Measured scan of single mutants.
Amino acid sequence: PREAYIVTIEKGKPGQTVTWYQLRADHPKPDSLISEHPTAQEAMDAKKRYED
């Protein structure tokens, strides 16, 4: 089974940042970016789909 994890990042100019959620996995390479999402819920949904 595949495993993934969610990383929170800040995008934008200082003082005007927006939080994004990255879905990452250690396949095919360590810390590979799988997808980016504007909400934590979307990231969790993507994580479930990826791991299923």
Score class of each variant (00 low, 15 high):
1 P>K: 15
45 D>P: 00
26 D>R: 14
38 P>T: 12
28 P>W: 06
11 K>V: 10
19 T>A: 06
30 P>A: 09
37 H>M: 01
36 E>K: 02
8 T>R: 12
4 A>Y: 14
40 A>F: 15
35 S>E: 02
50 Y>T: 02
14 P>D: 13
43 A>N: 00
22 Q>H: 03
10 E>A: 09
16 Q>E: 13
8 T>C: 13
41 Q>S: 10
6 I>M: 04
7 V>F: 05
1 P>V: 13
47 K>H: 05
32 S>R: 15
46 A>N: 03
47 K>R: 07
47 K>N: 01
40 A>E: 15
21 Y>C: 02
44 M>K: 09
49 R>Q: 10
13 K>D: 13
29 K>R: 13
2 R>K: 13
33 L>K: 03
50 Y>K: 02
9 I>L: 07
10 E>N: 09
39 T>S: 11
40 A>D: 05
18 V>E: 15
20 W>M: 07
13 K>G: 13
52 D>A: 15
46 A>H: 04
15 G>R: 03
35 S>N: 02
24 R>C: 12
12 G>C: 05
21 Y>G: 00
4 A>M: 09
48 K>I: 11
11 K>N: 04
40 A>H: 15
40 A>N: 10
9 I>R: 04
7 V>W: 04
39 T>C: 05
46 A>K: 02
39 T>Q: 03
31 D>S: 12
17 T>D: 05
9 I>T: 07
28 P>N: 08
41 Q>H: 09
17 T>Y: 11
45 D>Y: 08
24 R>E: 02
18 V>L: 08
13 K>M: 14
45 D>T: 08
2 R>W: 13
36 E>S: 05
23 L>I: 06
43 A>G: 02
44 M>T: 07
17 T>G: 08
44 M>W: 13
14 P>T: 11
47 K>F: 05
48 K>M: 11
37 H>I: 00
45 D>K: 11
18 V>P: 02
30 P>L: 09
38 P>H: 09
18 V>W: 07
9 I>S: 04
7 V>G: 03
48 K>N: 09
31 D>K: 10
46 A>C: 03
41 Q>N: 08
36 E>V: 07
43 A>T: 02
17 T>N: 07
43 A>P: 01
30 P>G: 09
27 H>C: 12
25 A>G: 08
34 I>P: 00
15 G>D: 07
51 E>D: 13
42 E>C: 06
15 G>C: 06
11 K>Q: 06
39 T>W: 03
45 D>C: 11
8 T>N: 06
37 H>Y: 07
46 A>R: 02
32 S>W: 11
43 A>L: 01
11 K>C: 12
50 Y>H: 06
6 I>W: 02
49 R>N: 09
27 H>Y: 15
16 Q>N: 13
46 A>F: 04
